[in-house]
Amino acid sequence: MSETKSSDLDGHSGDDHGHGGVGKYLAVFVCLCVLTGASFFTYSDLWPFKDTPAVGWVFMMAVSCTKALLVMLFFMHLLWEANWKYVLTFPAALMSVFLILMLIPDVGFRTRKYSEKRWQQAAEPEVHAAPAHHDPDHPEDHQDGPHAHQHD
């Protein structure tokens, strides 16, 4: 009795063919591979936004979120689950996003407000003046080598 009950609870006794299926999984697999190729494409020389890395970052994060959604919806069967899925996933996801958003102004942007005097005591090497003479259009250009800005 308990066995039938647990398979009832899993919701697979009645609608076994309502979802899943090898065909669907393979389609998702192909999508995932294509998307991985897409984010890897930003590494190739053909990627047109080499000089504005932010475009690449946004693109890659969008691709990653899409991949994550595909995995969760199809492989983790969330698409076919009851509404409890929101209870368990939303709070955790929101707390994760809030954590990062709260850390960015205090820690992430700390060096942007450093005074000249603060820079002298800073653990980070002082490079705040360098991007201006190096590449005035893209002050946040991270693509240069680490030694690039030290020649000032």
């Binding site: 990062i100 850390l103 960015i104 820690v107 992430g108 942007f109 700390r110 060096t111 980070e124 090497p125 002082e126 490079v127 705040h128 360098a130 991007p131 002050p139 946040e140 250009d141 991270h142 240069d144 680490p146 690039a148 800005h149």
Partner: peptide, 11 residues
């Protein structure tokens, strides 16, 4: 993410 983007440009 915070440390990587908080690092001064180019470092």
């Amino acid at each position: 993410i915070v440390l990587r983007f908080g690092a001064p440009a180019g470092t």
